[in-house]
Each structure stands twice: as C-alpha cells, then as structure tokens.
Design a protein around this nucleic acid. Structure first.
Lengths: 102, 102
DNA sequence: CCGCGATAGGTAGAATATCTACACATCACG
DNA sequence: CGTGATGTGTAGATATTCTACCTATCGCGG
C-alpha cells in the first residue's frame, strides 16, 4: 500500500525506540509477510521523518552487538501519527462508499 | 489514497459506460467529496487503463449534448478489478494487523 | 450581447514515493 | 572460507499524482 509507510513506521515506534532493520522486520512479521519494507524505501523514509521532526535518532548498539541507529518518535511525531490515522480512515471510508456499489 | 484510482475508475465503469468527467464526478459524489479526481490524474489514468486493455472507448455525446469519450470496462478489466480489490483488502488487513498494535 | 461558470478533454512538468540493485561492514555457523 | 543474517546506506529508474495550464461549447444572468 502506497503512502502508508510513514504511518506504519511511526506506529511501530510508539511501542519502543528501534533501529531501522528492526522496524522493517516488525512490520513484515506483524503483517504476516504481506507488507515488505525494502531498504531503499525504509532509510529514505526514516530520513524524511527525521527531517520533519517526527522522529529523532542516535547511534546505539543492537542486541546482537552491532552498531545501529535507534529512532524515537517525538511529540510532534505522535501528533502526526494521529493525523495520518484519521485521514487514512477517512479515505478508507470514502473508498468503501465508492466500492460497495451505490 | 494513492494507487487506488484505477480500482475506483474500473468499479465505477461496472455500473455503466461513462465519460471521464462523469466518472470523476461520480467518485467525488459517492465519496462525499473526500476523494477528488484531478484531470491531470484522471485522463492519464484512463489512457493507462486503455493501453492495458482494461477499458475501451469511443466518442459519443453526453446528456448535455457535448462531445465526450465514453469508456467501457472490458472482460480483462473486470478480471483486473477483481485482482485489485483482493490485493487491496489483503493489504488493508495487513495494515490493520500492524496498526491495531500487537 | 458579453462574460462567467459548468461541462468536457487534454498536456507539460514538477514533486513524490517506491522499488531495484548495488556497496559496505560485522558476526555466526558449517 | 564462504554464505546468510544483521545493519546502514546510496544511485537510478519507474510510476503515480498533482499543479497549472490550454482548448472548446453551452446556458444563464446582467
């Protein structure tokens, strides 16, 4: 699904700060492999979110001992997430109205 | 919503053959003005659908007496619509699983 | 009669998002 | 020693959509 990556990432980060690779794995696993987050989408998306101030990041160490950049959702990020969820649901309802005939 | 325009157009054409302007109006009205189909998206999309063989078109006359190109969904278009609906629903479920926590 | 909004079709170019395909590095395991 | 998993990232192509135009006809109010 196009245009939902930011929302999915932000949602994932509400659980806990995570590094990029883990975010992608989390989403793929929860979606039962329906959604796949390519690296070429993931990292630009994370940069985008950071540039907008919706996430912050710092270098850390992953559970496997490797260097990893941990992302944390900010207050404005949570606000943005709320907006994205409601506009997503709004659009969904609208599509539903068109598709379910009438 | 990105990537759903083709589906919405094809769905609209299952009701009856229609010209571009009417398709856009139909979708906008049914969606209660949540979705808006810009001409710059609509006509390229119709060309795309035609190139793929999912719709056919011919010149006709609109109820207001103006020249208008009428689009009709083809058999392969209906097949494609089915595919798009199921992949849409599949993706939707996947997103739901990610968003509704877990 | 004249202008304007609605109806109808269309294009050009920019912006955006995503994907494919790389490159790099470390670690564990066979 | 090689391969797959973990981890970050970039370059370039592709696709879709949007903004902003252009053309033309019709009906209506002033």
């Amino acid at each position: 699904m196009k245009g939902t990556l930011d929302m999915l990432i932000l949602q994932t980060l509400t659980l806990q700060p995570q590094h990029g690779y883990a975010i992608a794995q989390h989403i793929e696993k929860l979606s039962e492999d329906v959604l796949s987050i390519e690296q070429g989408s993931l990292y630009p998306a994370l940069e985008r979110l950071q540039k907008k101030g919706w996430v912050t990041s710092k270098w850390g160490e992953s559970p496997t001992g490797r260097r990893a950049r941990y992302y944390t959702i900010s207050a404005s990020g949570r606000k943005q997430l709320g907006k994205e969820i409601s506009s997503f649901e709004r659009a969904l309802l609208a599509i539903h109205r068109v598709m379910k005939h009438a």
